[in-house]
């Protein structure tokens, strides 16, 4: 597998179209998963995937076979998502709604019943800013300081955005469970 991937990468570095398609076939599903997380619908995710792959093919000569190739591609896709976010967002404001009280809910059954697609949908339903901050902090593992630098916002804004995103997700989970188990009080 390693040698095969190396050969594909080297062929892609020479601009071989068939190898580009092979690379796309190998990684498009996983990168599309990343794109879905950073988009609020599938159409945007597809556009993001397309733009990300174009950048990958354009810059693949710079990949020097050190470190994870998939990680390198994911970084490009995430950065493409951030660029789009920065372009589309004129001002970054935090939601001034009061934070909901901490929910003391029993989610055990809820979680068992929720499919990954449902989780994805919940994340996609977050506002752009909450979704980006949530993804960068929770999934990618960036610190609030790093997120602040990437999005040109303050560290405290990043923290409050994350907190709000968490609360909204909890609320969505609660509503989802309500729908699935009508009459059951949680």
């Amino acid at each position: 597998m390693y040698n095969k991937l190396t050969n594909i990468i080297e062929a892609c570095q020479k601009g071989d179209r068939a190898s580009q398609k092979q690379l796309y076939t190998l990684f498009s599903a996983r990168l599309y998963g990343v794109c879905l997380r950073y988009s609020n619908n599938e159409e945007d995710a597809k556009d993001l995937l397309q733009e990300g792959f174009i950048k990958i093919f354009k810059n693949i000569k710079q990949y020097n076979h050190t470190g994870s190739f998939e990680g390198w591609m994911r970084k490009i896709v995430v950065n493409t998502a951030l660029e789009r976010f920065r372009k589309n967002t004129r001002s970054l404001t935090i939601d001034n709604e009061d934070y909901m009280d901490s929910l003391q809910l029993n989610y055990e059954h809820v979680l068992e019943e929720l499919a990954y697609k449902d989780l994805m949908k919940m994340v996609q339903e977050l506002s752009d800013q909450y979704r980006i901050v949530f993804n960068l902090y929770v999934i990618e593992g960036f610190s609030h300081k790093e997120i602040g630098q990437k999005l040109n916002i303050g560290e405290s804004t990043s923290k409050s955005n994350l907190s709000r995103a968490r609360e909204l997700l909890k609320e969505k989970i609660r509503k989802q469970y309500k729908t699935k188990s009508t009459g059951k009080v949680i």
């Binding site: 599903a29 599309y32 998963g33 879905l36 597809k46 989780l119 999934i139």
Partner: peptide, 8 residues
């Protein structure tokens, strides 16, 4: 979601 994949 970290390793979520879906064929486009």
């Amino acid at each position: 979601l970290k390793d979520y994949s879906q064929v486009p």
